[in-house]
């Protein structure tokens, strides 16, 4: 076999393997003993929420069962985002599926950092320059809308301390063609080389484009994050 043909076939095999590995894994077989672990994790998550409720702070709670991401202040729900889909995982390089399930259950993620960051500019008015031709002093200035001022990407990540991340995807970006999503998936995988993107564990949620944008613009800089086991008990 000619070397070129050999390497070509080898490359195809490798790319095919990479494609298969990018498909979502099948769910693990149900383990009756897991029900005990589920209740324990649910109890621990509620204890975390009770502890957060005693502090004067904002925090998010992801409840995949009812499809909601809720912003709380103490124990008061402020705003609900409707989650279309939710997945959790760990980088294959580190751990794989066994550990990925453990890291988001009943754990509080802290110190969020939005990527890309939201940038807003401040306008400066100097009182004796108001009536000059300087546009900064114009009193009839019309500000942009929130969408114009801070256009939200269709996919963004909130990195938390400890190597955890919350990936938010607008539903439009989630339904791209298989070929383009594979290419973009490979590109994003390589972006993982950047130290700023070095999440070990990640939860991925899909929202409508409007809600994903609103979440991006408003994500509080010190908010914590808790993901809870699906529960039939309403929050």
């Amino acid at each position: 076999m000619k070397p070129a043909r050999f390497f070509g076939i080898l490359w195809l095999l490798v790319v095919s393997g990479a494609t298969v590995c990018h498909l979502p894994s099948a769910a693990s077989a149900r383990d009756p003993q897991a029900s005990n672990a589920v209740f324990r994790a649910r109890e621990e998550a509620l204890r975390h929420r009770l502890a957060l409720a005693k502090e004067n702070r904002l925090y998010f709670v992801l409840d995949p069962d009812i499809g909601s991401l809720t912003l709380f202040h103490e124990a008061t729900p402020l705003r609900v985002w409707h989650v279309v889909d939710a997945q959790a995982g760990a980088r294959r390089l580190f751990a794989g599926r066994a550990e990925s399930q453990g890291h988001w259950r009943a754990v509080v993620w802290e110190r969020p950092r939005l990527e890309p960051p939201v940038r807003r500019e401040r306008r400066l008015i100097v009182s004796d320059q108001v009536n000059t031709p300087d546009p900064a002093g114009a009193v009839d200035w019309i500000p942009p809308t929130p969408e114009e001022e801070v256009p939200a990407p269709e996919r963004y990540i909130v990195h938390f301390a400890g190597g955890s991340g919350l990936e938010v995807v607008a539903i439009r970006a989630d339904t791209l063609s298989a070929r383009s999503s594979l290419i973009q998936g490979l590109v994003r995988s390589f972006r993982g080389f950047a130290p700023a993107n070095w999440d070990r564990y990640r939860i991925r949620i899909v929202l409508s484009a409007e809600e994903a944008g609103m979440l991006y613009r408003t994500f509080p800089p010190e908010a914590a994050f808790v993901a809870i086991i699906p529960s039939s008990i309403p929050w």
Binding site: S28, A37, A90, R92, S100, S189, R202, R204
Partner: peptide
Amino acid sequence: VLLSFDRQPMVVNGV
């Protein structure tokens, strides 16, 4: 592949 995430749905199974 190594840098990608092995994702699984978060819903239902446990409950």
